[in-house]
């Protein structure tokens, strides 16, 4: 353990991990919706920093761009549009009984993974090896080109699906047909007038 603490990288890890876990904790417990989203920003920024620590630069900046840049804004929009209560709100979470059950389940999950990882990997060392973006690009467009195409189709489907779902229906059918009928009858009258 002492050995572990002498490495500067591990101090950096602690500095990143602490705000990360705290941010995640506050994000799922906060009684203010907007705060909850802002805590998520902290967590995601920390995860980006963690990726930098592991040498995955491109992933780190993708997280910053996509998540912190776009997804968070989407969440804030979602909150605004659904008129979620913006101030302090006690009814944001379930009752204490449900919370207890959920806490037990997620605690058990955490314990399970921790035990499995410690028994499985022990003190396996890993060394950060920076991956250049060009390598990522080469790999993505050679080895993983088909998954890449599939993801692009998924994104397209999500785009169309999002539009279809969120779009307001056009005017009531009754309205449109009556207005159309009106226009037609006017047209007929005009023709009749000419004749």
């Amino acid at each position: 353990m002492n050995d572990w603490l002498t490495q500067a990288e591990n101090w950096a890890f602690i500095l990143i991990a602490l705000p990360m876990v705290l941010g995640a904790w506050r994000s799922v417990t906060s009684r203010n919706v907007v705060h909850s989203v802002l805590f998520l920003v902290i967590t995601l920024a920390a995860s980006a920093a963690l990726f930098l620590l592991l040498g995955a630069e491109f992933v780190a900046w993708s997280v910053v761009l996509v998540y912190i840049g776009a997804v968070i804004v989407l969440f804030l929009f979602g909150i605004m549009i659904t008129r979620a209560p913006l101030g302090m709100e006690t009814e944001l979470s379930h009752s204490n009984q449900t919370k207890l059950g959920a806490a037990l389940v997620s605690g058990a999950l955490f314990a399970l993974i921790t035990v499995a990882v410690i028994t499985g990997f022990g003190e396996t060392e890993i060394v950060s090896n920076p991956t250049r973006t060009s390598e990522i690009g080469q790999s993505m467009f050679e080895r993983f080109v088909i998954p890449f195409e599939v993801v692009s189709v998924v994104l397209l489907a999500a785009l169309i699906g999002g539009i279809v779902l969120a779009r307001r229906d056009p005017a009531e059918p009754g309205d449109s047909s009556s207005s159309l009928g009106g226009a037609q009858s006017a047209h007929v009258t005009a023709e009749g007038g000419e004749a």
């Binding site: 572990w4 490495q7 990288e9 591990n10 890890f13 991990a17 990360m20 876990v21 995640a24 904790w25 994000s27 799922v28 967590t43 995860s47 963690l50 620590l53 592991l54 997620s106 605690g107 999950l109 955490f110 993974i113 921790t114 990882v117 410690i118 990997f121 022990g122 003190e123 396996t124 060392e125 890993i126 060394v127 950060s128």
Partner: peptide, 16 residues
């Protein structure tokens, strides 16, 4: 750095 620290951090985040 050991592998476990990242996985356990991930597990904590996942559980939260």
């Amino acid at each position: 750095m050991i592998l476990g620290q990242f996985i356990i951090l991930g597990a904590a985040l996942f559980s939260l």
